[in-house]
Structure formats: C-alpha cells, structure tokens
Design a protein around this nucleic acid. Structure first.
Lengths: 380, 380
DNA sequence: ACATTTTATTTACTAAGTAAAAAAAATAAA
DNA sequence: TTTATTTTTTTTACTTAGTAAATAAAATGT
C-alpha cells in the first residue's frame, strides 16, 4: 500500500534498486533531497551495512573531487520466498536484489500444519545450500493460490488447497522465527516486477500471470493497488462470452474458461489432442492442426479483449505478462497482441507497452520473497 | 494526484469536510495526530479564519471539561467553476463546502479568446449576485470537453470545441486574476464527489458521467488516478460489439455508440421517435414502444458490461453514476443494474455499491470549482 | 604552487511532529 | 460549599527529518 519513497532514506534505497550504483550527488538529483540529506542518510545506511562505497576508480575523469559510487550490499539481507499451491510448494532464498541463491521444493502435504512442519525442515537445507547465516535472513514472503487477507496474514479461502481461514503468516513466521507476510500470487508477482523485475521504473503498470487460471495485479501511484477489499485484478472472471462454458464461479464464459491454462488443456483433450503443456498445443497449431490453432487464437483474442478493457479503464504504462504455461512466441501471443492492437484507441496504442516473458524457474517463490524484501526495505 | 491527508493540517481539513463539526479530541482520534498537534494546527487555522469554534452548547452533558466544536468557515474562501462545452458554458461561484451561491451562463463564443473575454465580463456579475468580495475568491477551476494536460493547464484537443493546444488555465487565470486549473469533466466530477459529494468517505471509487458520451474517473488510494498519460477512465471507447456501428474513433461498437446520449438520440430519431432527451425515450418505452425499450435495454446492458469489467479489474468500493441525460429511474438504469448484478462475482456483488443520481443544475461547473477548492485546501 | 572545479560534509537552523505534565472547565460527592 | 473526579485542551521540552549556506576535500589545469 504505502509508497516506498516518502523519506529521503526510502527514496535512496529505491533509487539504488533501480540504478545499481550512484554517487551521492546523483542520488540528490534523483531523489530530490538535498546533498546534506543524502550525506546523512548514506552515512546511516553505510553504518548499518546496507550500502557500500564502490572502490572502483572513476571511468570519466575530469576536474573536481571525484565522486564515490554507492551501491546496495546485496548480501546484507536475505529473504525466504515460498509459493504454496496444490501442485508444488517451491521455496527459495534471495538476496536484497532478488537473486536466487538456492531453491528447495517442499514435499507435498495435506494439511497446513504438516506443510508448515515440512517448511521448517526444508529451511536449514536451504540456508546451508545458499551458505547464508540464519542471522542475515530478514523475513519470509509467502504466496497462496487463493483469497488472502494480507493485512491479517490469513488465507481466507483456497479451493485448490481446500483451506479456509488459515493464519499462514503466523504459522510460518513462528516456525521459521522470521517476520512473515502472505499475499496472493498475482500481487506478489507485481511487487516482484516493481522491485526486482521489469517494472522498476514504472509507477503505473499491470502484471498479468498466465497459469492454470489468469490473475493480475496493478501498481498505481507507485503502490500496489489492492482495491476496496483486496479484490482488484480479478480479470479471470471477466465475462467474455455470455454463452460460453460454465465456470467454477457459476457464470458462463469467464476469461479463465477460454484462456486459462487449465481450461485450454481440458479443451485440447476434448479435441483428442494429447498435450502436457501449451508448448505442445502451439506445436500442434504450427503443424496445421486447426483445433489447436482455433483454441489458441480464441484464447489469445479473449485475453486481448480483457486487456483492451483494462487499458481503456486504467491507462497503465505497461502490461507485463508472465507466461507460466509455456505458450512462448506463437499463435496465442500473436492473437493476444493483435486483439489488443485492434481494440484500443490509437492514443493508447503508442503509449502502452506490452511485454511477454516466460516464467523462469523459481519465479513465483522469488516474487513471494520480494514481498518480504519490500517490507524490510520500507521499514528501515 | 497528491493525497490530501499527508500532514496533520490537511488531515484536519479533510476530516472537517467529511464531518461538518468535530472537537479537537475527536480530530485527534480521526486524524491519528496527537492532541498537541491538533491544538497547534487548529490554532493556526483559526487565526487564518478557515476554522471557527462552534459556540453552540453541548448536547451531551457529562463530567469533565466540555469540548469545543470546530467547523470550517464556509465563507472563508470562494471558488469559481466553469464548464466549457460546445453547447453551453455555465459558470458558478461556490463556497468552501461546495454550496453554489450564484450561477451565470457565459454566452456562446467561437474562439477561445472571445470566450475568455466573455468570462471576464460575466465574473463581476457573478460576484455581485453572490455578494462575495473579489478578495475572498481563491481560484478558478475549469473543465473542458476534450483532452486536457492538467499539469500544464492546456487543452490538447477538443473535437467538440475545435480547439487544439489552448492554454486555458493561463488565459482564464490572467483574465480573472486568479489561480486557475483545468481538467476534463470526468476528473472534475470525481474530485467533486470526493470533496463535496457522495464519495466523501471513499478511498477507492469510480465516478461515471452519462452525457452525450460516457466518461469516467477513478479515485485510488484516496487520490485521483489519471493513468500513465492522463487517459484513465476512457470507458466510452471500450468495444462492446465488434460488429456494431462505426464510432468517431474509427472502430466499431464502442460503448459510446450504444449507450452514449448522443448515439441514443440519433438511434431514436432513426426509429422515427421524436425525443429531446432520454426522459422522452423512457416515456416511449413505458408506453410500450418496443424500439424505445430495445434501445434503452441494449444501452443499459452495454454500460452494465463495461462496469462489470471495471469492477473485476479495480474492485472499487462504489460506482457513482451521474445522469446528465435524464434517464431517471427507468428501463435504462434497470438494465444497467441487472447486467452488473449478473456479470460480477458474488464476492463483489455484496461489496460494491452502485449509486445513480440525476445531475442537478450547476453540477458540472460546481465540479470544476471543486478542483480549485482541492488545490487551495491542499496548499494551506 | 596556486587557481579552478566538482563532490561531499559540517554547521546552524527550521518545520512538524510527539509524550508527558499542567491547566482549564465542567460534574459529583462529602 | 468545598473538594475530588473527569475530560478536554494547552504547554513544555524534546525528537526527527529535513534545508541552505559555508566549508572542506580531492582531483585537474595553468
């Protein structure tokens, strides 16, 4: 919720997350704070060990006292990220800048209590593999596939996990003896993009995750926007085709039923196409299978329509897609792009960036970790 | 852009805009500031004359030192509001709390320069009618039907007025010797709802204006959200029916072509129905005219779909409709409501308030004035 | 050696807030 | 009628986070 640039200190940290290394005078320029203030703040942060002076000699020589570059000491703080879903529960440890140092899958568990116990057992292994002392870990971020009350740290409901009112952050925080935060996947991904990813210098953007279902989250005014009661970004249940297939939500033709990974796999199967992921379906389409091509085109067009609505409503600077299903560059993305381009005002066409990328391994738990990183950095 | 509650002073003013009158201790509670801070701030504002102590005796008697209520002195500051469109240019003067003291239509003019001259001539009449001394007027807010760069105070383009790059706020500000701000209608209406209207205690809401076309604006995190380049809220050009009628924007089936007042009047005419406003069309529908009923139902359903998209994307607390076309309670509103109810997740159904209201005379220029009020109050 | 230039720090100050003690203004009880 | 009690408001002394302007530091150019 809170912007991370209210004080000179936060602004300094934010600027260094964006720019890798900066001199004090550059920091003053970027943050708008006075040079005196930057001296004060950087002294403070150098003492804490969060910043280091860059001993590398100047590249550009000239008159005047040479500037000393400052950068974040990535090893000053580490964060744990856990992404809980019905299929797997990957766990990672990252540094201050979102680099993954080690990964560790948590074995499948039926109940929250068992899962927490398994997480506790996995934690020392993760620390050992990363070579990180326990004392340097500043928090754990958790994503849960479901409806989360992030203020209270409770998973209100998860159909996938069959959870109801599970106090996730309390359980895991106590188990690992760390400050803990929970959120839903989509919000975590947006925070990750803002801090560690492609959105570092965007104030207003939307991040869309293409997985079994379709989730999204918005940054507005440089802050995560959760909506009135945490429901912002629910684009999976926008009605695209009122006469379409029945959705789990009880209505027909939701975006999820047309372009969600789960629905597409089911539809492919119904067409007699054996696919394990969208890569296979795209492959069928390339080889001339009309069913595959139709499914992918329809799905892309549906997603494109929803994004076009979103662009008209919110005018974001960028839309960042994260592809967890392996569509890669193919029929689906092309249909999505084309539909967007055909459905938005010329005014928006030039000013809205649309970016796809394939989710790398550890992407979700790394996003989870970014929540903890955000909370830690803004609390300094 | 900026929230209006950053300092104890702004928070005090905001609380008093919402609650009419409050004691110092209530203010401390509401704003979260310390009692000491409230003493300091209220002293300051009392000296300036913005606040007055309420001399009315306590209603609730009890032990302890009785509290003294504070309220905003509505007559401390007045604002001018002007709403510029192709059909009329109404001008009003309001007090600090958005009450309209006088209205004055500005005669039609072809060019911006002529219009500004006419505004200058109307200004003294307005002041005289309201009985307000020039010195108490703190600013002028202007809305223009078109694309506005509110930072620079320039109307970039208005098809309706045939304007391009007109420095509206500079021209009018100089003519009236007042600080001046410009924005588009939809944004002004949202600011008006937040300060003077139905949205006083909402942080996240959308305001939708039903006029010749359909415009909207959002408050998020308690601030007006303009989008990446000022285009947020352009719901009029959401594609509802890709095979629909051609829109001015070059694409087909935009919401404006189905539910905009202009389009509906044209469609009614094409059906041989002589209507001057939507009231007439609703009347035809009530009397059993199937064309009228069909037009209104289709329009309401189209608007409802767009709102449903918006609810899923942004999860606002409220949607405030302002009806400038005279639909009143009839087929159109019913269709809108029903479509929304049928198209949003149950989760949102209970938590999203949908409110319609008829625009009262002077509504648009009063909204324009609220921009000036906002800027004045946040600058204190 | 000394002037010049650019970067960083120090100094002295201000603005905006807080906690805790004190004062003010009423009612309730002895 | 005092005096105690209660609640609201103000005062006092202090803290935090910032700034402008003077100064120091560290290089290059003359």
């Amino acid at each position: 919720m809170k912007p991370y640039f209210r004080s000179a200190k936060s602004a300094t940290i934010a600027a260094l997350l964006q720019h890798e290394q900066l001199s004090r005078s550059e920091l003053a320029e970027i943050t708008g704070a006075s040079a005196a203030s930057i001296t004060e703040v950087s002294q403070n942060l150098l003492e804490q060990g969060l910043l280091v002076e860059q001993p590398i000699p100047q590249l550009v020589k000239g008159r005047g006292r040479p500037s000393v570059h400052l950068r974040l000491q990535a090893s000053h703080a580490y964060f744990i990220g856990i992404s809980i879903s019905e299929t797997a529960t990957p766990m990672v440890i990252t540094d201050l800048q979102g680099h993954i140092l080690a990964r560790q899958p948590v074995p499948f568990c039926k109940t929250p209590v068992e899962l927490v116990a398994a997480i506790r057992r996995s934690y020392p292994i993760l620390l050992r593999d990363a070579g990180v002392p326990r004392s340097r870990v500043r928090g754990v971020g958790i994503t849960v596939a479901g409806i989360v009350d992030s203020d209270l740290g409770v998973c209100r409901y998860s159909a996938a996990l069959n959870w109801r009112d599970v106090p996730v952050s309390e359980l895991i925080g106590k188990a690992l003896k760390l400050p803990a935060w929970v959120d839903n996947d989509a919000n975590a991904v947006a925070v990750g993009e803002k801090f560690f990813g492609r959105a570092r210098d965007s104030l207003n953007f939307t991040s869309i995750v293409l997985g079994r279902t379709i989730g999204s989250a918005h940054y507005m005014h440089g802050m995560l926007y959760r909506g009135h009661d945490g429901g912002a970004g629910e684009i999976g249940h926008i009605t695209i085709d009122p006469k379409g297939a029945l959705c789990r939500c009880g209505r027909n033709g939701c975006l999820d039923t047309i372009a969600g990974g789960g629905a597409l796999r089911a539809a492919a199967k119904a067409c007699g196409l054996a696919v394990s992921g969208m890569r296979d379906l795209e492959e069928f389409a390339v080889q001339g299978n009309t069913d595959a091509a139709r499914l992918l085109r329809t799905a892309g067009a549906a997603l494109g329509s929803a994004v076009a609505y979103l662009v008209h409503i919110n005018n974001p600077q960028c839309i960042f897609f994260t592809d967890m299903e392996g569509f890669e560059n193919g029929v689906f993305r092309t249909a999505t792009r084309q539909t967007i381009e055909n459905s938005i005002l010329p005014r928006f066409l030039g000013s809205t960036e649309i970016l796809f990328s394939d989710a790398e391994p550890g992407f979700l738990p790394r996003s989870a970790a970014s929540i903890a990183a955000f909370e830690y950095l803004t609390s300094l």
